[in-house]
Design a protein around this nucleic acid. Structure first.
Length: 315
RNA sequence: GGUGGAAUGGCCGAGUGGUCAAUGGCAACAGACUGUAAAUCUGUCGACGGGAGUCUACCAUGGUUCAAAUCCAUGUUCCACCA
């Protein structure tokens, strides 16, 4: 099978992906695919650091503003929709440029990590989460041990979400999730990705995170969350549990002062930044550039061209 | 000047004779990740050592005791109240 070469610009939050992506996309005449689990939602603009509309008129951006915050939108949706979008871009003789910081989504898109057939059912899920709440996480884990000991072994008993999901899969299919993972068919979208990683010393990353959040907090982020709440988009919906959103909801509910919400948001974003880096370490092939001194644009453009021409550039 | 209270590991903070290298939280660091992923979860966290363990630690000094972060004395600093 002939794999389609594509390029993804990765890196931790606030490293400077967006700025560079615009410049590169202009020179390459590329269209940008946002790989960002929160930018897919409408009305969540400031807190997700979404690119401005004026830029979006210059360069087409995909996978932004495609769902409402109370809508279910999953990795699977992302991967399916993105792969179709990319096919269309390529048919138009344009170049897709992946840009974003959601490692899990890259994993689904480029590493054939998802199984083809995996059902899900809100009701079953809710049933188990309720059970965990009333009877404790341990009980849930013990149940899993009975139907799917391999998954139970792998999953920590406190990880209620994953234990729930494993039980959900068993209920819906009658088969152990671990078994399906092992033997089932994977979704391979046929891409041959080259990751271009942008990095900075962590200290610098952390201070950029703080600066960015301070700016967002003083330029409309609290009001954005107020608007969302007023329109019924609250913490019941997962997107609103995101960085800054969760904290600003607590601010609007009077549980946190504004500066406390800011501090908490900064802390949680730093933790997220570390998690992203843990994922990215395993992404390959990848070429990393420290962009704290220079943005390495010329080198990056060159690498991209070569990879798209089918050369092996992963050194 | 008087009276009362407090000083604990990077920070906050529990501990009031042995089971204490010291609960917990934060920060920091490492990690897991199959349709919620900016979600969810785990581990490490005084120093040296692979480990058994050894050493240094709860403001300072001295003391009581088989044994002190915990008791006593003195000193230092801080807080509160009264002058």
């Amino acid at each position: 099978m002939n794999r389609q070469p594509v390029v993804a610009l990765i890196g931790a939050t606030a490293v400077g992906k967006t700025a560079l992506s615009i410049s590169i996309a202009e020179k390459l005449k590329a269209e940008i695919i946002s790989v960002d689990s929160r930018q897919v939602y409408r009305y969540m603009d400031i807190g997700t650091d979404k690119i401005s509309l004026s830029f979006r008129r210059e360069i087409p951006h995909h996978m932004i503003d495609i769902a409402d915050p109370d809508e279910k939108f999953t990795v699977s949706d992302f991967a399916e929709k993105t792969s179709q979008t990319v096919r269309r871009i390529i048919e138009r003789d344009k170049i897709p440029l992946f840009v974003g910081g959601t490692p899990f989504y890259y994993n689904a898109l480029f590493h054939a990590s998802l199984n083809s057939e995996l059902p899900s059912d809100e009701n079953v899920r809710e049933k188990y989460e309720t059970l965990a709440n009333s009877q404790g996480a341990e009980l849930l884990h013990m149940r899993l041990e009975q139907v799917d000991p391999v998954s139970a072994e792998r999953l920590h008993k406190n990880d209620v979400k994953r234990v729930t999901r494993a039980l959900e899969i068993f209920d819906l299919t009658g088969k152990a999730a671990s078994e399906i993972f092992k033997t089932g068919e994977k979704r391979d979208y046929g891409f041959d990705v080259l990751y271009i990683g942008l990095s900075r010393p962590r200290e610098e990353l952390f201070s950029r995170i703080a600066i960015r959040l301070e700016e967002e907090f003083s330029s409309g982020f609290p009001e954005e969350v107020e608007w969302l709440l007023k329109n019924g988009f609250d913490e019941r919906f997962n997107p609103l549990k995101g960085l800054g959103y969760r904290e600003l909801i607590e601010y609007h509910r009077g549980k946190l002062k504004l500066n406390e919400a800011l501090e908490a948001s900064i802390s949680r974003t730093k933790a997220f930044c570390r998690r992203q880096q843990t994922w990215f370490k395993k992404f390959s092939p990848a070429v990393w550039f420290d962009v704290s001194e220079s943005n390495h644009e010329a080198e990056i453009l060159n690498l991209i061209q070569r990879h798209l021409n089918g050369e092996d550039v992963s050194q």
